[in-house]
Amino acid sequence: MVKANKYLLILLVTVTTYVLFEYYRPKPIDWSPTYENDDKIPFGTQALFELLPGVMQQSAVKTVRLPVYNFLTETKLPNRSNYIVVCRDFNIDRNDQRLLLRYVQRGNNALISAYDLPDSLGAVLGFKADVKEPTQADTTLRQNFVNLQLRTPTGYNFFHDDGRNFLSIKKSANITVLGRNARQEPVFIRLQYGKGQFFIHNLPLAFTNYYVLDAKTSDYAFKALSYLPALPTYWDEYQKQGRFDEDQQSILRYVRSQPALNWAYYLVVFGLILYAIFAGKRTQRIIPVIEPPKNTSLDFVKTVGQLYFQQGDHDNLARKKIQYFLAELRERYGLNTNSLDKEFTETLARKSGTSLQETAELVRLLRDTQKSISLSEYDLLTLNKAIENFKSELRLSRF
């Protein structure tokens, strides 16, 4: 009993030590670009989201966890407001787009920062999100504002971005370029739509924690947001985190929310527990599965042959091949294989039903192989092919 307690104590100390080590050891930095407003990792957007109320002069910025269509139809909105989306890919369907256009047309503002933007939205507003070939990637490419009051002498370098994304603009009096890269390609534009404005930004990495907290680039995001008026602001998280929070993403969420289904769930669980207790015992002896006997002779022969071949012992393998082939001829046709002469050849051709010419060629090859001092891999393959062809002729002659 003392020994059992001793071993149990050792196990407990070991497990506790491992758990504490895993909990307190430094965690590697996660460089995944999530753009989520509750992520503290370099490419999350928690820093900007927490500072946004001060920029917008609002008490709080509301998070949206609904598709654009649902949000704009189910939410009571103020007369004018801002809608901000920062994500990798901005994905909306036809209904979302229709409601978003109507939202801006009525005098609201939408700032969308994403690498991939829908072509259907660009077709309506007069722009297209383009990307250059991988060979033209440039992590040293600098970005800057067009407005002289906002631009800096050296520009901004977001070196984790490869510099391939830019915006193509159709000629339109309603579009104003707000930011360009060093190639003079637009990356930030303003589009007047009805009474409101769209702000399309093609570099969402600039709004992440890494660049918002870096002294060299920290003011870029706030200068870009300064184009939005100080109005109630909504921050879209549906594009990144989906509709539900982490504690709402259980597959049983709907079942648990309905009283009838919830009681049914508990009854099923309780019933399964009772079944496991009272009816879980095996009522019939397990019938063992008896495998039929296998003929492993052929497998053994193949294995030995492969072993000789892999070791490169072609001479030994060829001579054994001849030895077993002659033994087969003796057993099947009652031939004397001590002398592979003309009489042996004619007898074999007659009894096997093969042509005299083919039989003579095979016997000649067998005789030459027996006389050879050393055989190569090519000789072995030639011999094997001749024997297999002869056996094939025998099988065909039977039908």
Rank of each mutant, 00 (worst) to 15 (best):
Y35K: 07
V64T: 03
D39N: 14
K27L: 11
N37Q: 07
K62A: 08
Y23K: 14
M56K: 11
D38F: 07
V61R: 07
Q57I: 08
V55I: 15
L51T: 07
K27H: 11
K40C: 00
V61L: 13
V55S: 15
E36F: 02
Q57N: 14
F49G: 02
P42H: 12
I41C: 00
V68A: 15
K27P: 02
Y24L: 13
T34I: 09
L51C: 04
A60N: 10
A60I: 08
I41W: 01
D39M: 06
N37E: 07
W31H: 09
V19L: 15
N70W: 10
L72Q: 11
L20W: 09
L72H: 09
V64H: 04
L48R: 04
L72W: 08
D30F: 01
A60T: 12
Q58Y: 08
V64L: 05
F71L: 11
L66K: 14
P28Q: 07
P67G: 03
P53T: 06
K62C: 00
P33Q: 07
K27W: 05
L66H: 05
V68M: 13
E50T: 12
I29F: 03
N37T: 05
K40L: 08
L52I: 10
N70A: 13
K76D: 09
F43A: 04
D30L: 09
A47M: 09
V64M: 04
Q57M: 10
F21D: 00
L48W: 06
T73D: 02
L48P: 04
K62H: 08
T45Q: 06
E74A: 13
N70L: 13
T73E: 07
F49T: 04
V64Q: 04
F43L: 15
S59M: 10
L66C: 01
D39Y: 05
A47Q: 13
E22P: 01
F21C: 04
N70T: 10
P42Y: 12
L77K: 13
T63K: 15
E50Q: 15
L51F: 11
L20T: 10
E36A: 12
F21W: 15
E74V: 02
T73P: 02
P67F: 02
F49M: 08
A60G: 00
R65V: 00
P53G: 06
I41G: 02
Y24C: 02
F71C: 11
W31C: 00
E36P: 00
R25K: 15
I41D: 06
P26H: 08
K40T: 06
V19S: 05
V61F: 11
Y23R: 14
A60S: 14
P28C: 04
Q57F: 05
K76Q: 11
T75D: 00
G44M: 09
D38L: 03
A60Q: 12
L20I: 14
T34W: 06
F49H: 13
G54E: 15
D39T: 05
R65F: 03
S32P: 01
T45P: 09
I29Y: 02
Y35D: 06
T34R: 10
T75P: 03
A60H: 11
R25Y: 06
E74N: 13
Y23M: 06
K40E: 06
